[in-house]
Amino acid sequence: MPPISADEQAAIWCQRLAGTMDLGDQAAFEAWLAEDPAHITLLEEAAIIWHGAGEVADSPEMIRCRAEAVEELRQANARRWSRTFDWRRWAAMAACLVMALGLVGYFLRDRPASYSTGAGERRIVQLEDGSRLTLDGSTRVDVEMDRKSRRLKLLAGRAKFDVAHDALRPFSVLARNRLTVATGTSFSVELLSRQVRVVLYEGRVEVMAQPDSGPPAVLVPRSSGNSGLVPGRELVAPTTRDAVQITALNAPQSLSWETGMVHFDGQPLSLAVERMNRDAQRTIVVDDPRLADLTVSGVFNSRDTAAFIEGVTALYPIVAREEQGQIILRFKAAAK
Rank of each mutant, 00 (worst) to 15 (best):
M1E: 14
I4E: 09
D7V: 13
L17W: 05
L17R: 04
L17C: 15
Q26I: 02
A28F: 03
D36E: 09
T41E: 10
T41P: 03
W50P: 04
A53Y: 03
G54S: 13
G54W: 10
G54Y: 06
E68I: 02
V70I: 14
W87K: 07
R89T: 09
M99L: 14
L103I: 10
G105E: 03
G105Y: 03
Y115G: 04
D142I: 02
R151V: 13
L152M: 14
L155I: 09
R158G: 01
F161G: 03
V189D: 05
L192Y: 01
V205M: 13
E206G: 03
V207Q: 09
P211W: 07
V220F: 12
R222C: 06
S224N: 13
G225L: 11
V236G: 03
A237V: 03
T240V: 08
V244Q: 03
Q245A: 12
L255R: 15
W257I: 05
V262R: 08
F264G: 01
G266R: 04
P268L: 02
R275I: 06
R278A: 08
D279L: 01
R282D: 12
I284V: 11
V285F: 03
D287N: 13
D287S: 14
L291S: 00
A292G: 08
A307I: 01
L315D: 00
P317T: 05
P317A: 03
K332T: 12
